[in-house]
């Protein structure tokens, strides 16, 4: 049954060969975020306008006079990608209705990192989703402010060491758990909310296609591995992306009109969380008892998600 359901996984040749983000950009070796970006743009295809927040993906792609963007693209500031996207969407809508531009669908998307989504950009995101703009918002979540030098955000996981949540003698890293932005989006009654990870490219692309088909707001939260910020080898990016899913730390799911569905194969037993934590320098300071605490938190979050999958009915 699973094999049939996930047939797409075995059909990578069906992926659009066209590239929408050109090579030669300045991302770090092994950057999972730029891979996520490349894949999501493949999922979107043509007829897209991008509003991007300040951050890694902006800095590596658009040093004047160069650009890596083949779509029409605008960057204004850090916290306002959703608001700029709102304006783009409204502008295109009005101009099309008034016959001032071509009469065809053009999708507006907004992109921000975890800081630009969960912290400084949360208000603009909430406003844009509540107003119901025909727009997809992508959070490329690498779990800290990587562009400014690995400072913690509200998306940084529990006990991870960053430059502003260092593994000190008194306080061993990040004191809080990860803010659950997909849940916040579901609470906004956003018709399509999903999580994705570039280690599962077909799943990611399929979700983007689904989101593009929605007439209204959609939100996709993409786990974006960051070897530079996570203090790990750049060649294990894809492996880390698989481990974060297989351990249940970052489950792949989608929420269509309030109905939850797991899009990964449901394991009989999750892999131990240590498998995911150990290759990463940001978790190097953890003691076995710390790892046990994290395991308990992951188990609890997994159960909460399973309950939703079982109980939540579509609106």
């Amino acid at each position: 049954m699973n094999t049939v359901q996930n047939f797409e996984i075995f059909a990578p040749k069906l992926v659009d060969r066209k590239e929408y983000f050109s090579a030669g950009h300045r991302a770090c070796q092994g950057c999972g975020e730029v891979l996520a970006l490349r894949l999501l743009l493949k999922g979107l295809g043509d007829d897209v306008v991008v509003a991007n927040a300040t951050g890694c993906m902006e800095i590596i792609s658009s040093a004047y006079p160069q650009t890596a963007w083949l779509h029409p693209y605008i960057h204004v500031a850090f916290e306002n990608a959703a608001a700029v996207g709102s304006g783009v969407e409204a502008g295109l809508k009005a101009l099309r209705r008034k016959g001032k531009i071509a009469d065809r669908d053009v999708k507006t998307i907004a992109i921000a990192g975890d800081g630009g989504t969960a912290d400084i950009g949360l208000q603009a995101l909430s406003g844009a989703m509540e107003r119901g703009h025909d727009m997809i918002f992508f959070c490329l979540d690498n779990e800290a402010y990587m562009n400014t030098g690995i400072q913690r955000s509200s998306a940084t996981p529990f006990m991870a060491a960053t430059t502003t949540s260092p593994a000190g003698e008194a306080i061993p890293g990040q004191r809080t758990g990860k803010k659950n932005v997909p849940e916040i989006m579901v609470a906004h009654k956003v018709p399509y909310v999903a999580t994705a990870c570039p280690s599962y490219p077909i799943d990611l692309i399929n979700k983007v296609k689904k989101a593009k088909a929605v007439k209204g707001p959609a939100y996709i939260h993409i786990f974006s591995m960051c070897p530079t910020g996570w203090r790990c080898a750049s060649e294990i990016t894809i492996k880390l992306g698989r481990l974060v899913v297989e351990t249940g730390v970052f489950p792949l799911y989608e929420v269509e009109n309030g109905k939850y569905r797991l899009t990964m194969e449901v394991p009989e037993k999750l892999r131990p969380v240590g498998d995911y934590l150990k290759p990463q320098g940001r978790f190097r300071h953890l003691t076995p008892s710390n790892i046990e605490t994290i395991q308990e938190r992951v188990n609890r979050e997994w159960e909460i998600l399973m309950n939703k999958i079982e109980c939540m009915q579509p609106w």
Binding site: G85, A90, Q123
Partner: peptide
């Protein structure tokens, strides 16, 4: 939802 977003939305719309 704020003036920060009103001027940001104006920027996006004006750019179209």
């Amino acid at each position: 939802e704020s003036e920060h977003s009103s001027i940001s939305a104006c920027a996006g719309a004006s750019a179209t």
